[in-house]
């Protein structure tokens, strides 16, 4: 009796797992495995035949100036926007957890960008850089900004950073607020009695206690920014020249415009390796800084 009930329970659990497992097998395992294989071929994505070339595509990427340019742009973009969006978000969160008036209103304002389409936000900012920024630059006599920032090799990078920080900080604010609210009030009180100044209280008490939130935010932001695509499409399309061609845009262009399916897939797998390696490094650095009350 007992045994058969146990068996049917085990069967029940397995049936619950199966539909999800089936989807993963079809649309996750199968494409990942074919990506691994394709990355070792010279397939163009159209013709019926292709040759197995081993690791040639990976070697070729490491000496391909276009890939190295895209990689260096992506890494710089991801590092700068991750650092800036975390600093901005943490500063806003520090203010929003204080007892201020209209706190819920301000929280709703700062979270708002997180629900909006990155592509449309990119288009709106593109119009701002094209029409609004030069309009004010002329009146304020700022020479450098009188033409469209997006058409300038160096300024286009910073234009992308501005848009990214504007939107990416939103979700980080909410995560930091949740983290800050777990820091007990009495820790601050005893620090204040001991005469710790504002900055000291922040760097010696708050910061170490919210390291778990910092870990989540930095990893989330870094992964998202290493995969930047929508903003690039909306704002620069990789230009001027190849100045803002991200690795994701390069993969798309290789696969769909240049008919280099095999090579494009190899580049995608290298992006994956970069994301994993950078995430592991971040987790290790931040875990060492974690403290417990």
């Amino acid at each position: 009796m007992q045994n058969s009930a146990y068996k049917s329970l085990r069967k029940g659990y397995l049936i619950l797992l199966l539909p999800g497992l089936l989807l993963l097998a079809l649309f996750y395992v199968y494409p990942v495995l074919s990506a691994l294989y394709m990355s070792m071929t010279n397939w163009d994505g159209v013709s019926r035949s292709h040759d197995f070339v081993g690791l040639v595509n990976y070697g070729a990427a490491l000496t391909d100036p276009r890939f190295l340019n895209a990689l260096s742009f992506t890494l710089q973009y991801a590092f700068v926007s991750t650092i800036l969006s975390n600093i901005v978000a943490l500063s806003i969160a520090l203010v929003l957890v204080k007892k201020i008036k209209f706190r819920n209103f301000f929280r709703a304002v700062f979270f708002f960008p997180a629900v909006l389409s990155m592509l449309i936000i990119g288009y709106i900012w593109q119009q701002i850089f094209y029409h609004v920024v030069p309009y004010f630059a002329e009146r304020l006599n700022i020479e450098a900004l009188q033409t469209n920032m997006l058409g300038n090799q160096d300024l286009a990078f910073w234009a992308l950073i501005i848009v990214t920080v504007w939107q990416a900080s939103a979700i980080l604010v909410v995560i930091y607020m949740a983290g800050l609210q777990t820091v007990p009030e009495d820790v601050y009180e005893s620090a204040a009695i001991d005469g710790a100044s504002g900055w000291k209280r922040f760097s010696r008490i708050t910061l170490p206690l919210i390291v778990p939130s910092i870990t989540i935010c930095v990893i989330l932001a870094m992964k998202q920014h290493l995969m930047v695509y929508d903003y690039i499409i909306a704002l620069t399309d990789g230009g001027p020249g190849f100045a803002t061609e991200s690795v994701t845009l390069l993969i798309y262009n290789l696969g769909f415009l240049n008919n280099q399916f095999g090579y494009g897939t190899a580049v995608a797998l290298m992006l994956f390796v970069f994301i994993i390696v950078i995430s592991i490094i971040q987790i290790n650095i931040l875990r060492k800084k974690e403290v417990q009350l």
């Binding site: 996750y28 897939t265 992006l271 994956f272």
Partner: peptide, 24 residues
């Protein structure tokens, strides 16, 4: 093992699967 299998997908960028998926 199933747990790690499901969660592993969080780290795989869509770009890895993009080109094979179009074929598939």
């Amino acid at each position: 093992v199933m747990y790690y299998f499901f969660v592993s997908g969080l780290f795989v960028p869509f770009q890895v699967m993009m080109l094979p998926l179009v074929q598939q």
